[in-house]
């Protein structure tokens, strides 16, 4: 069962990362940002936007499958830890830098997410569904 969770969370992280990277590629190729049909056509006229949709749909179903078995607290925390994988991937794919500011900000955010995970866990009985695997 432990292996099931580990695989599930890695899959979730994979789908989330795919979505974010696809969003970035799709947006970059559709520049400049405009509120008009031409921008929409640029967005939907290249393949990356569909990678984002695949990532979202995959993350949604993985999340639903995980929630059937996994406790909500760790599931919530793990579902938001894609910030780590996305940051590392953006260094590799987009030549971005892990500046001190970003690492400091990411550390605080991750600590906060872990706190929220524990909070959900301790009130599991009363807790409502958390945000789905979203942005």
């Amino acid at each position: 069962m432990r292996r099931f969770y580990l695989f599930g969370f890695l899959l979730l992280m994979g789908f989330d990362s795919l979505a974010q990277i696809s969003f970035k590629y799709a947006g970059t190729q559709a520049l400049p940002v405009e509120v008009n049909v031409a921008w929409l056509l640029r967005v939907f006229g290249q393949p990356w936007v569909y990678g984002a949709i695949v990532g979202y749909v995959g993350a949604f179903f993985t999340w639903m499958a995980l929630l059937k078995h996994a406790p909500i607290g760790p599931a919530f925390a793990a579902s938001h830890l894609e910030v780590v994988s996305v940051m590392l991937l953006s260094v590799w794919l987009f030549d971005e830098q892990l500046t001190l500011v970003r690492v400091a900000g990411a550390s605080a955010i991750i600590a906060g997410i872990v706190c929220l995970g524990f909070a959900e866990n301790s009130e599991h009985a009363a807790a409502p569904g958390p945000a789905a695997a979203d942005t």
């Binding site: 974010q20 990277i21 969003f23 970035k24 799709a26 947006g27 970059t28 559709a30 520049l31 940002v33 921008w39 967005v43 936007v49 984002a52 894609e82 910030v83 996305v86 940051m87 953006s90 260094v91 987009f94 971005e96 892990l98 970003r102 900000g105 990411a106 955010i109 942005t135």
Partner: peptide, 15 residues
């Protein structure tokens, strides 16, 4: 979100 990410570095955007 697509428009937002096209204007900021991805690592900053997700944070």
């Amino acid at each position: 979100w697509i428009a937002f990410l096209s204007l900021v570095p991805l690592s900053e955007g997700v944070l």
